[in-house]
């Protein structure tokens, strides 16, 4: 990292940016701090995510964008030493409230991971897994319907329709990732979190996924962590820039990439560090 970058002592208030009034706020984050043991990973994050939009989280590695993403469906609960404070609301509901059930939360806030991680099961069972455990289908027909529509939605159905009983791990990397997206869609989440979903894929598979994300926007709110600024520019309407655990700047994707307010954002998007 370039040492010329001046790191402000005080976090800049990223909330100078206001979402347009007409947009419904799906995920609201207020003063979120995350500690891993002694180390603080996130500082006072404030962010509003509008429904049915794609929001990109960008920033150099280790900046906290993945950590933030994992707060939104409480994946940090799995890590013993992680401690989250502050308030995160999903449709006005505090997700860290003790009455909130993580199982339900994670069904409503789905996740797609950096590395495709299909279960060692058949393609069908991979997609059917979520609906099965949550009891989303009343009978076999309904379940099959969910699987088929999810696969269609993920743009994978035509490629695998003749081998739904084959193992999901036998697919190519891009197909595996779309299978994971189908798997996430199948639980009918409201929000889908994507943690660099295309970083392990080749350019063609990446293009397919990006197209898919744009389509999914109609039904889902999507928050995506990405390493690639071009990708963020292509697929998202809003972009948030993280740096050293601070949310430095949020804005219209176009504005962030053309006319960033903060010096650090500017340095980052012009490739001076990161």
């Amino acid at each position: 990292m370039n040492m010329n970058v001046e790191t402000p002592k005080e976090p800049v208030d990223a909330m100078t940016f206001q979402l347009p009034e007409e947009l419904q706020v799906k995920v609201k984050t207020r003063d979120v701090n995350v500690h891993y043991g002694e180390k603080q990973a996130l500082f006072d994050i404030n962010l509003d995510v509008p429904a049915n939009h794609v929001v990109s989280l960008i920033g150099p590695s280790g900046c906290g964008k993945s950590t933030y993403l994992r707060c939104l469906n409480r994946m940090n609960d799995i890590i013993d030493i992680a401690r989250v404070s502050g308030k995160i609301e999903l449709d006005g509901l505090d997700i860290y409230d003790k009455n909130i059930d993580v199982v339900e939360l994670r069904a409503r806030v789905g996740m797609v991971f950096q590395k495709p991680n299909p279960f060692p099961k058949s393609i069908f069972d991979n997609v059917a897994y979520g609906p099965r455990i949550h009891g989303l289908a009343d009978n076999k027909t309904e379940l099959e319907e969910i699987v088929v529509t999810s696969l269609q939605k993920a743009g994978l159905f035509d490629e695998v329709k003749d081998r739904l009983k084959d193992s999901g791990t036998g697919l190519s990397g891009g197909q595996q990732q779309r299978l994971c997206i189908a798997r996430a869609i199948a639980t009918r989440p409201e929000v889908i979190l994507m943690d660099e979903p295309a970083s392990a894929l080749d350019p063609i598979a990446t293009a397919v996924i990006e197209e898919l994300i744009d389509e999914l926007r109609q039904n889902f709110t999507i928050i995506i962590v990405t390493h690639s600024m071009q990708q963020a520019a292509r697929i998202s309407q809003y972009t948030a820039f993280f740096h050293l655990g601070y949310l430095v700047e949020v804005g219209d994707t176009e504005q962030i990439f053309t006319n960033p307010v903060d010096r650090r954002t500017q340095d980052y998007i012009t490739g001076r560090f990161g």
């Binding site: 949550h134 319907e145 529509t149 269609q152 739904l164 869609i185 009918r188 409201e190 039904n219």
Partner: peptide
């Protein structure tokens, strides 16, 4: 799995709604 293919394919948009209660 051929029987799956015989299903009336639902409109993709019906996927999100109605959501699970």
């Amino acid at each position: 799995m051929t029987d799956i293919l015989d299903h009336q394919i639902a409109e993709p948009d019906s996927l999100a709604n109605p959501r699970h209660d």
